[in-house]
Design a protein around this nucleic acid. Structure first.
Lengths: 76, 76
DNA sequence: CCACATTTGTCCGTATGTATC
DNA sequence: AGATACATACGGACAAATGTG
């Protein structure tokens, strides 16, 4: 049984929080440094998480503001 | 007008090649080091490209073998 | 089965740019 | 002007799977 890498576990957790409604559209995710501290990983791992979640259309990042949960099922 | 980052340009190019049929399901993409040399970027950039393309379901990587174009529209 | 090269996967540390507050 | 915060990129290191000889 393969071990799950950090970036995937974190992505899974955030994805589940979004799908379960714990995190709703418009909600702001914790900052990158906050997530780094919380999970004990580097910024690269968090970047991988956000890259994945963005590609899936679940979140969108804004420089200087933060990363926000998108309205699910909305592409524009 | 924003400049397009490397990882996004490379991802766009590969994505277009897949959607246009230039790269077909089952085709093997060039190796990571090959792409690094070709585009003059680091492995991290290529990793970001593959992470994005994988999240989009366009390709799938296999350790020791390579990255292959997936049958589009097939989830399993 | 073992040794080796190849290739993808994962992670760390650091630096710089740009946008927001 | 400064602090905060996301975005991009480089370099280095090690693990795991595969194919070849």
């Amino acid at each position: 049984m393969p071990i799950t890498p950090f970036y995937q576990r974190i992505a899974d957790e955030i994805r589940e929080r979004i799908k379960s409604g714990d995190l709703r559209p418009g909600d702001k995710l914790p900052s990158t440094s906050e997530l780094c501290t919380r999970y004990g990983v580097s910024t690269q791992v968090i970047r991988s998480v956000m890259l994945t979640l963005r590609a899936e259309g679940l979140v969108e990042g804004h420089q200087g503001r933060g990363v926000y949960v998108r309205d699910q099922g909305v592409t524009g």
